[in-house]
Amino acid sequence: MDLDLRWPLGLIFTLFGAILTGFGLMSDPSLYRRSLDINVNTVWGVVVLIFGLAMLGLAFRAKKRGKP
C-alpha cells in the first residue's frame, strides 16, 4: 500500500492542534473555570500540533528518501 499513513495523521493533528491553540488564545478565560482554570485548549493544542508536525516531518523525510 503506497499511501503513507503519516500524511493523513500529520495533517489531521496539525489541523486539530492549530484549531485548539487558536481558539484557546482567543477565547474568554472564564471558559476555563471548569478545567480548573487551566487554558487546556492552548496547552493541549500545542501538544497535538507538535505531534501533527512531527508526523508530517517523518512522512516528508521518508518521501525524500524515496521509501514509501
Binding site: F16, I19, L20
Partner: peptide, 11 residues
C-alpha cells in the same frame, strides 16, 4: 462535560 471546555470537548 464536567472538565472539558468547548474545543477540547469536541476532541
Amino acid at each position: 462535560a464536567r472538565y472539558f471546555p468547548p474545543g477540547l470537548l469536541g476532541l
